[in-house]
Design a protein around this nucleic acid. Sequence first.
DNA 1: TTTCGTGTTAACAAAATTGTTAAACAAAAA
DNA 2: TTTTTGTTTAACAATTTTGTTAACACGAAA
Lengths: 215, 215
Amino acid sequence: MGAEEVQTEKLIKEKAKILFFQKGFLNATTQEIADEAGVNRALIHYYFRSREQMLDLLLDETLLEKKVRVRTILSSELPFKEKIARYIDAVVDYGLNYPYLENFIISETARHPDKIREFCSRDRVKSSDLIREDLEKEIKKKKIAPISAEHFMVNLSALCNYPLLAKSVLQTIHGMTDAAYRKFLIERKRIIFMTIFNEEMPELPLKKELTKHRA
Amino acid sequence: MGAEEVQTEKLIKEKAKILFFQKGFLNATTQEIADEAGVNRALIHYYFRSREQMLDLLLDETLLEKKVRVRTILSSELPFKEKIARYIDAVVDYGLNYPYLENFIISETARHPDKIREFCSRDRVKSSDLIREDLEKEIKKKKIAPISAEHFMVNLSALCNYPLLAKSVLQTIHGMTDAAYRKFLIERKRIIFMTIFNEEMPELPLKKELTKHRA
DNA sequence: TTTCGTGTTAACAAAATTGTTAAACAAAAA
DNA sequence: TTTTTGTTTAACAATTTTGTTAACACGAAA
């Protein structure tokens, strides 16, 4: 047993993520996953028992990773608009890696509503609760038109996630190359901020600072 | 042969649409479709040759129907803001019937990029072209912040379609019933307009008028 | 060296899914 | 009535996909 060799388990997960979340092959078979990883199909069952269990694990890990990033930002002490700017930045960047993640979730959730229910029930606060206070303050200061926290968050998710989700469609319609679409998505960060706040997005100072705690 | 009896072909298509576009069962098998329609599975092959061909037909028909509705609005002579208000109204209403249509397209397109390419290539004008002039005028009049027609249309589609697409997820997160979510979606029509134009959505006169031609 | 355990493989079995076909059926036409 | 035509059904065949198992490889520990 060698920790220095290729970690087959990790390799399979990585390649499966690419198939499902990057390439959008929602129906990828165990064989296709094994091929992508250049590995015998039986290993998928060896490490993950069944296809189903592997999917659960993948989703759980990936969703958690994304949730941590997002929550870190939304529950930080940053001023509201910077918080949102960072949220947009993080979600779009994450989506550039895994454009079809949301699509996958949607499909899985349609078939197995209990899975996402279980995942959501783990945390007591909804993400809309995390911005409610900030938002209401902003509204009172007349800095932004009245809107409920739920609608605000849905607007934000929609503007960030949809262009990633619909990558294949939008790219085809507008006849863009992969590179052009990537550029378009990065442009969108500013556009999204403008659409929501009706003003230019501020420059963001170094990202690393955010996770560090300062007593 | 009786035209007065239940049209099996139509019945199958209707029920398949429900499975795919309403319930979001992207992987529904021919057996599941047959069951939903209360019909022998072989009939699906009798009428549509293969599962694949049935899917193509369904997508084509449904997309065309939606496209006609949208194009009718976008290429009408209405003032810009009313045009957009009607677009929002139509897309959200259509989505209330088929919330998972977009999801289906996205998945199909990821696997078979040629299909959507073929569908798109049928019309010469992109929908963003249909509003470009109007939009530029509006921007010159300082009625709206500068934005490209592409970003504007993507914003609009995102705000309209995402909440439908992510129905199962959002509904779970916010703990809504079907009825509550439906209400939420209808509320969103005004929200979307406000988000884009930063002003209240006007009341829309009767919808029927739109399709009629007046020389 | 032998033993042990993890990781890997090919071969097999079982289930699910699609597509075909021949026969049954029913209503209209001859 | 018989024939014909379009529709429906059950049974079958082929393929795909998943899951299991027994044998194999090979380094580490005894």
